[in-house]
Nucleic acid binder design. Sequence first.
DNA 1: GAGTCTATCTTAATAGCAATCAGATTCTGA
DNA 2: TCAGAATCTGATTGCTATTAAGATAGACTC
Lengths: 209, 209
Amino acid sequence: MPRADKGGRYHHGDLRAALIDTAIEIIGERGVHGFSMAEATRRLGVAVSAPYAHFADRDALLVAVAVHAYQLFSAELLPQTDAALTPVDRLAAMARGYVRFAATHRPLFDLLYDASLDKAKYPELEEAERPINEGFSACVLAIAGDDKEVAEDLATAVEATAHGLVTLLLDGEYDAKTVEGAADRAARVTLALVESRHLLSPPPPLPSG
Amino acid sequence: MPRADKGGRYHHGDLRAALIDTAIEIIGERGVHGFSMAEATRRLGVAVSAPYAHFADRDALLVAVAVHAYQLFSAELLPQTDAALTPVDRLAAMARGYVRFAATHRPLFDLLYDASLDKAKYPELEEAERPINEGFSACVLAIAGDDKEVAEDLATAVEATAHGLVTLLLDGEYDAKTVEGAADRAARVTLALVESRHLLSPPPPLPSG
DNA sequence: GAGTCTATCTTAATAGCAATCAGATTCTGA
DNA sequence: TCAGAATCTGATTGCTATTAAGATAGACTC
């Protein structure tokens, strides 16, 4: 972990990587909102203008951190997919994992879903997110019997619910107990969605309003 | 709608209200993130320091706008509750309304759920949010047969899903078609949750993971 | 109506931030 | 060895929030 130990060398060595590490550090301490380029350069003992040789602007650096975060997310979430479980159980496990990641790495999670990074402008974001979406889709498709429309419907519902639960969880103050509680809840809601006739077949008529 | 038409008067008249209006205007144009005190004072033809006679800081002004947004939200959402419908249908209608409000007043919705305003620091926020939560709770309690634990579980699930759907909807680009599509989806998922044995009774054993 | 008090507003200033530019330094490869 | 490219510094611009001290207007009293 390189610190302000440049020791008079003009060139840093790997400022790009050091900036990403320091950004993760600062975001961990102060949240995405509390991160600033200036603070990062201060910690690295480097001129405020130095980062701009490696990143076009603040957002570009945050995107690099976000890519890193997605990789971590994948690494924690996807192993659940390989287990010898039924697709339904795997899906529930992923919902759990989603909640756990958000709670365990809150600042990074906020960076991914709260700091409005423009996915259109930074294609590497979608690229980094893809493994997650694919693991998820595979799971859902297996459940939906390869009916793509049903699968998309179900996927959206499960994703939305997990994400929404996390939002509610993170809005209030939370401790370990409520984290596992929310994880349980996410799993339970996932099961409810999977079994529902409202999602798994041609939808019955809806009351309008 | 008072503009930069102060016309040399030293006192503005009602700068406090004008600031809130202008803030809504700017947030509508540029999003919460793009709002600045400086821009607001510029539009009102007033010194940059003038707002601080009425609001402690930027956040305090945003909180005032958020209170306004909650009132609008209530006004659009709660009428659904009075209709002569079953509790379940009312709940589905509220899920719809939730999605519609978010899509129709996106900047205000972002202000409520994206700009991390500290509810502990500004109790008026919870106060303004209360009518919504109460209408919602009443509905859910009726469905759960006054079993508070089940009701809380169900409420969380429905709220989370609606919120999550909105998040997904707002993340991608969206047009009128997808808005109603998302509203439909929210209603459908709500029905699925309400009918699920996983939520409406002592929960069956969960696979761990 | 004169005088006082207070709220409101102005001017002026500080400090933090992102971003740019010109130039210095170091690295790289021919 | 030397030219060019990459990296970094120092100085600067212009935006932001926020504060302090003083001017002005409205409200309230005598």
